[in-house]
Design a protein around this nucleic acid. Structure first.
Lengths: 144, 144
DNA sequence: AACGTTGTTGCAACTGGTTGCAATTGACCG
DNA sequence: CGGTCAATTGCAACCAGTTGCAACAACGTT
């Protein structure tokens, strides 16, 4: 759990108060190493810290998202999915047919961001997209 | 209200049952000529048709979205915004600072779709995006 | 025109997520 | 180390949206 100190530093640098709840929540997301829902985070912390409220989780996620520490994505499953943002910013391709989720490198969207900036002066914040469609495999199967 | 017949035809062609509720709801969206929330649709219909349920609106929107008649966008305001899709498919650039919403032509995303298809074989369904960022004007103001 | 099938509606209960508020706690300062 | 103040927490009420279900209505058939 060496990330706790590290996370505390990140919070402090961002001018946020370092509370145990925040550190715990963010560490949980960080350790998960994949998408987690708010409910999953609460479950994970429930053993040791029974009374962390859902609202705290959501508020922590919101501020962490603003800071660029965490991404929030609607994967189409009713619940928001949170993910720790490491060095590799990425996006997701979600197949409507088989439900498969593939990572998509940030580079693919960089060109879009460049075009938007050059043509319109709009500085797009392409944080974390979920792009729906049909994957290669499922196209072959002729399903829709 | 000539669109009612037209809407009915669209539904029938898509193999959907033509119910008064659907026609009313879709015509309301179509006439709005801009984004509308589910609540707005209900309000608009409430005078003449007091007991159209929210769930019906959402279900109608969901199927219409699948058919490509309507787009659903989360503009970041808590409520989903629905919009009739005419000939001109478009997206939205939303400024985080001033809240201004600009239309973005589909063409800008076509190239992304092309790249995704050629590189990964993924047939992206870039239905209707809301892209957040900072607009030209607000960048000049140095705000964030 | 009446019938049966099948999809749709309205309702009510529920879920995920947000918000207002009083109590608490972390950060800063002397 | 103790006091002050603003930010944060937990709670409870609330809001948007979804779902299960029984009643119902649209469409194809006869």
């Amino acid at each position: 759990m060496s990330c706790e100190k590290d996370t505390a530093v990140l919070l402090r640098e961002a001018g946020q108060k370092v509370t145990p709840q925040r550190v715990l929540i963010l560490c949980a997301v960080r350790h998960a190493g994949a998408h987690v829902t708010a409910a999953r985070v609460i479950d994970a912390l429930h053993n040791d810290h029974p009374y962390i409220d859902v609202s705290t989780v959501y508020r922590t996620m919101a501020s962490a998202t603003d800071l660029g520490l965490v991404s929030e994505t609607d994967m189409g499953g009713g619940e928001s999915e949170f993910e720790w943002i490491g060095r590799d910013r990425h996006h997701h391709l979600i197949c409507r047919t088989c439900g498969d989720v593939t990572s998509l490198d940030q580079a693919y969207l960089d060109s879009l961001a460049t075009v938007l900036y050059e043509a319109l002066g709009f500085q797009a914040d392409l944080g974390h997209f979920a792009i729906f469609g049909v994957c290669k495999h499922c196209q072959g199967n002729g399903q829709l």
